[in-house]
Design a protein around this nucleic acid. Structure first.
Length: 188
DNA sequence: TACTGGATTCACT
DNA sequence: GTGAATCCAGTAA
């Protein structure tokens, strides 16, 4: 099973944000389907708007993880895009598929819908910290095409596309404006 | 060196 | 709905 290649992330963040929906993010024993993304490019609210030492990976790489610490207690994970132009796609929420017990332990909750329905919650549930910053997407922390993972792992266990009782909005964001892209509990 | 604000979350009312 | 928690990066002096 191969993760999405670096080349896959060559496009701009706005284009890649909706394409990441439905992809499977996997780290260690945990995996989940990406259900919310947010594209950050030339947006004043974005670290990409004004490149600093911290946000330099967004300019210099694509297909790398950009993990930053915010509000004194939370980590947020982005995938860098479009090398040469600062941009990234924030993983806002995923639908847990594998390793749910581990996620529950990390999140200190049994409420399945609260495991990964926020960017910082996703990081906590998957054990993502600054250690993953500027790491290439792949290896132990990778993104897979859902169809490909279905052929190998998930489909055999019958878990792909099953919400595990988690109801999450199926949507993506561009520069902070939500766009409904799917039909699962679509609400803005 | 000191200060300010933040791509959030959660408990409490 | 509101406010506290919390600490790092960026910026100004």
């Amino acid at each position: 099973m191969k993760s999405l290649p670096q080349k896959w992330f060559e496009g701009d963040a706005v284009t890649l944000a909706p394409k990441l929906l439905g992809k499977v993010v996997k780290k260690g024993s945990c995996s989940g389907i990406i259900v919310e993304t947010e594209a950050y490019a030339n947006d004043p609210a974005s670290h990409a708007y004004k490149v600093t030492k911290r946000s330099l990976p967004m300019l210099e790489t694509h297909g790398h993880w950009y993990v930053y610490f915010t509000y004194g207690m939370h980590w947020c994970a982005n995938v860098t895009t479009n090398k040469g132009t600062a941009g990234a796609v924030l993983i806002r929420a995923v639908e847990p598929v594998e390793g749910i017990d581990v996620m529950k332990r990390r999140r200190k909750t049994d409420a399945a819908r609260n495991l990964c329905n926020g960017p910082a919650k996703f990081c906590q549930a998957f054990g993502v910290t600054g250690h993953e910053n500027v790491r290439p997407v792949g290896g132990d922390f990778a993104i897979y095409d859902a169809a490909e993972i279905a052929k190998n792992d998930i489909a055999t266990s019958g878990r792909i596309g099953i919400s595990q009782g988690v109801e999450l909005p199926w949507r993506f964001y561009i520069k902070g404006n939500p766009f409904v892209s799917g039909k699962k509990n679509a609400s803005v």
